[in-house]
Amino acid sequence: MSSAFVYVLAASAVFGVGVYGLIVADHLMRKLLSLNVMGSAVFVLILTVGGATPAGPDPVAQALILTGIVIAVAATAFALALIVRMFQETGLTSLRGRDDDD
């Protein structure tokens, strides 16, 4: 079993855990954390597929992960702000129940 295969397997497992958490979790913070777990799995995978070439590490893969991390941080910060705002407006931290309005 090559080391790349181990990484791919690990990334898939972590991604799966993230998807499971996103679906099953009730609290919005947990859902957000699950998304972050999924993101980490993708970064591991990018590192694996573009990792070591005979000429050294692949710069494109590094750039992708760096950009990906920046986006993940920004999206997480935005989601946290939205969760806080939603809690202040509605007192809720989950999406359960029906939409009622007017």
């Binding site: 939205l82 705002r85 939409d99 309005d101």
Partner: peptide
């Protein structure tokens, strides 16, 4: 509230 939930 309804819009916040939809956005979330």
């Amino acid at each position: 509230p309804a819009a916040m939930r939809a956005a979330m």
